[in-house]
Nucleic acid binder design. Structure first.
Length: 852
DNA sequence: CTCTCCCT
């Protein structure tokens, strides 16, 4: 009987190659599609192998149910009880004996086991099942075990079992491990595309309703419908109630929902095969893709959408998004119709859309919260994952976020190394936030029983919040006064187990029993211990500012609306603001006490733009939150801080506030002209001045407290002070304010373009000057803008001599008629320069003669 | 306004 059953597994043919790979190379990758029998046949086949000796086999599976069912299956094949040759170990539950050679464990349990026994000495082979699911734990476990094999345990064999997708990459990761392929054993599923709208909305759901109806009338088997979430499940269920009132009433048709928030009893109704003469329609989320198997399904109707969280490392929060599924997920869903016979799958999208789908889901390591992962690495002495063999490295921003939080929890020191406290957190096997909360509560002598309840409730938040917003206090009450003994029995067991663990580790001593009566329990403080990064201050309008600087509003208005401070336990990110779904009030005094080390007192001295003067405030900060804020009188502020504040004001856009005038702007440009041709001269452009640095500015701004005083700063002197004595002397000759032309006028030079200083002057005032005036040590000719007597530009030149010799005569032709009263001599280089008319010149000549 | 799934 046993022999016959064995032969029916397709994987049998591949087993000799697997044994050869493990025997010779010590590693292997077994690729087998569903139904091959790999999970149950391969471990049993390895037991007799010589290389295993007396050592045991570890079979790692991603889920608890998978561990139990695999162990039962294997035990049955050997005609034994679970716990004999084959046993399992999952959270809160184990069936293992001295005789056990194959231990089926969830990956999470195995990571705990490795903390006790890092080299896994009792085991000779580790098998990874369903590795293609690429769970965070699975990736980490393979990385660590490969490392152990490389460094300490050459004899530790590794077999990775996976669907096709990850095989080649895993083989490469394991140094070229042989890849063995086995056929699967599933029935054909005919895939039909039924184009729907491009969004997941009512239109799509109505179309799905019609598709269900069509399948119900044209086929005989049960129908499984994949939808993204509870909202959609209920909508379609309502449609079915309207469409099949009679059938549902008589019980010949049943409609079940499959969602993780439903109780185990409710879920198992959907999984069972129906009685003869009865059919079922199961409306499910992605839970039905892998976690459960449903009997009797012949038709799958796939919406093509999935709802999942998107973690943002920047905020440390996540957001639920509804997206298209991957091709791999679509095949997985279709496959659910082919487990017991030929099936049919309707896909609510077209073939073109299908090609546009992602091939696979992104592995968890690329988008998950990495806090536990990073603590685990720290336990192994690793600062990050770069030293580990991983198919995908985690994103660095998520690693940074995780490291920051671990440091905040005291799990790591300033160098990122794990602390003793961190080791205690890692050993407890719950989220580091929650283990920190427990240990902090215990160190304060609080009631351990209560704290463990809070930890368990927070661990399973979604089971309690049930959509409607509640405070932590309300949830704990709901848990403790639960409807009946059974409903929360699993969670009660977890709470008890935590208490035992704490006692065993000696982390918790019974002394609280004596203090119990004196300690008033405080959920706000507990929440703040677990979520120190999520304390928030009321902005006064019922919205809150998180310590991280992010704003958030209560998802439902209630008494917390008026709480000055709270801890946002569960926050969902929205597009503009975040909404707080679960919170608890915390008192300011408690924050001051708990976060004493992290609160920074800042004396904020700043330039108050409105008042036009320096003001000082003493603020206590916790991250972006201001806990207290009191004014400090000016005379109590140190002069340094005052200068600092003025400096900050001036250097952040206030340089315009200085009393600039024409003269100082020109001085600035003159120095810039020198600087442009010789970088040894200072850069005194607005930007250049700002770059002069704090020390220099502090000297200039010393003693200032208000706008009037700022306006009194002599900018001209400030600019001069950037020059040494030699430079100020040279500035006067090489970049003078003005130039005395032959007529006696002093003409201002425009330095606004340092490459081309300009002097605009009436042509007649330059008679007798044959060379263009030059500036700077490089003798750069001034650009002359020659003007008509009416001050209109006539010519631009940098070569006065050639102007007199040539262009002058052309210009004269045009202008002589227009300005006959002004001199237009034949020999301009010898003529008398003047700013006047000919008549005025005569007069003044007369005057001169008379005086003589 | 209305929460996917899994694990220590």
């Amino acid at each position: 009987m046993r022999e016959m059953k064995k032969d029916t597994f397709p994987v049998e043919e591949a087993i000799p190659s697997v044994m050869q790979a493990l025997g010779h190379r010590g590693t292997g990758v077994l690729v087998a599609e569903p139904g091959a029998g790999k999970t149950t046949r391969v471990p049993l086949a390895c037991i007799q192998e010589e290389w295993l000796g007396e050592k045991k086999i570890l079979l790692l599976v991603p889920r608890r149910v998978a561990a139990k069912s695999a162990a039962h299956f294997m035990a049955a094949q050997r005609g034994e009880q679970v716990g004999d040759t084959v046993g399992y170990r999952i959270r809160l539950e184990q069936k293992i004996s001295d005789r056990t050679r194959v231990e089926v464990v969830t990956t999470g349990v195995m990571l705990r086991m490795m903390q006790q026994d890092p080299t896994l000495d009792q085991y000779g082979l580790v098998i990874f099942d369903e590795f293609h699911e690429r769970t965070l734990d699975g990736d980490l476990a393979l990385g660590l075990i490969w490392d152990v094999r490389q460094v300490l345990r050459e004899d530790l064999r590794i077999l990775v079992m996976s669907a096709t997708i990850a095989a080649e990459a895993v083989s490469e990761l394991l140094g070229g491990a042989p890849v063995i392929r086995s056929l699967g054993r599933t029935y054909p599923v005919d895939r039909k595309y039924v184009p729907g709208p491009g969004t997941c909305d009512k239109e799509l759901l109505d179309l799905i309703g019609q598709q269900i109806d069509q399948a119900y009338r044209t086929h005989t088997g049960d129908i499984l419908v994949f939808l993204p979430g509870m909202k959609e499940l209920k909508y379609v269920q309502q449609q079915l109630n309207v469409r099949y009132p009679l059938e549902l009433g008589e019980g010949v048709l049943r409609c079940y929902l499959l969602h993780s928030s439903l109780s185990i009893e409710e879920q198992s109704l959907a999984l069972k095969r129906c009685a003869a003469g009865t059919r079922k329609i199961v409306l499910a989320t992605s839970i039905a893709e892998t976690s459960v198997t449903i009997d009797g399904i012949q038709v799958v109707i796939d919406s093509g959408w999935v709802r999942k969280p998107q973690f943002s490392p920047r905020t440390g929060l996540s957001q639920l998004i509804t997206t298209r599924i991957s091709k791999a997920a679509a095949d997985q869903r279709a496959g659910r119709a082919g487990r017991q016979g030929a099936g049919l799958c309707y896909r609510l999208w077209n073939e073109e859309m299908h090609h546009a789908l992602n091939a696979y889901d992104e592995p968890e390591i690329r988008h998950a919260d990495l806090i536990s992962f990073t603590l685990e690495l720290a336990w192994w002495g690793l600062q990050d994952a770069s030293g580990l063999s991983l198919l995908d490295q985690p994103s660095s921003s998520a690693m940074i976020q995780a490291r920051e939080l671990l440091h905040l929890l005291g799990a790591t020191d300033d160098q990122g190394k794990i602390t003793e406290h961190g080791k205690d957190l890692a050993a407890l096997g719950i989220h580091p936030r929650l283990s920190h909360m427990l240990l902090s509560a215990l160190s304060r002598g609080w009631n351990v029983h209560e704290a463990c309840d809070v930890a368990v409730v927070l661990q399973h938040q979604s089971h309690f919040s049930g959509g409607s917003y509640m405070t932590l206090h309300e949830i704990i009450k709901a848990f403790q006064d639960g409807p009946d003994e059974r409903t929360y029995s699993q969670f009660r067991a977890e709470s008890l187990r935590l208490q035992q663990q704490l006692t065993i580790k000696g982390l918790y001593e019974q002394e609280y029993e004596q203090k119990k009566s004196q300690i008033s329990y405080d959920y706000g403080m507990l929440a703040a211990m677990a979520f120190p990064d999520r304390v928030a201050k009321n902005r006064g309008d019922g919205t809150f500012l998180l310590r991280s600087g992010r704003g958030a509003a209560l998802a439902r208005t209630d008494r917390l609306q008026h709480a000055p401070f709270l801890v946002a336990i569960q926050v969902e990110m929205g597009k503009t603001t975040s909404s707080i779904r679960l919170a608890e009030e915390v008192k300011e005094k408690q924050l001051l006490d708990m976060f004493e080390q992290q609160i920074t007192s800042v004396c904020r001295v700043r330039w108050d733009e409105e008042k036009g003067k320096i003001t000082g405030r003493l603020q206590q900060h916790l991250g972006a939150m201001v806990l207290s804020d009191t004014p400090v009188p000016l005379d109590q502020l140190s002069s340094e801080r005052i200068v600092e504040a003025v400096y900050e004001y001036v250097t952040t856009g206030g340089i315009e506030q200085l009393s600039w005038n024409k003269k100082s702007r020109q001085l600035q440009q003159r120095i810039q002209f020198m600087h442009a041709h010789d970088p040894r001269w200072p850069d005194v452009s607005d930007e250049g001045l700002l770059k002069r640095g704090r020390e220099w500015w502090e000297v200039q701004l010393d003693g200032l407290t208000n706008l009037q005083q700022l306006k009194q700063i002599n900018v001209w002197e400030l600019l001069q002070s950037t020059l040494d004595w030699e430079q100020s002397r040279r500035l006067e000759t090489e970049a003078p304010v003005d130039f005395e032309v032959p007529s006696g006028s002093r003409i201002r030079i425009d330095y606004s373009d340092p490459d081309q200083p300009v002097m605009a002057v009436k042509l007649q005032e330059l008679f007798g000057l044959s060379q263009t005036p030059t500036l700077g040590s490089h003798r750069i000719p001034v650009t002359l803008h020659l003007l008509s007597p009416a001050m209109r530009p006539v010519q631009i030149t940098r070569d006065l001599k050639s102007f007199w010799e040539q262009t002058y005569f052309e210009v004269r032709k045009d202008l002589k008629g227009k300005y006959p009263k002004h001199p237009w001599p034949d020999h301009p280089m010898e003529a008398q320069a003047t700013r006047r008319t000919k008549a005025a010149m005569e007069k003044s000549k007369d005057g001169l003669l008379k005086r003589k």
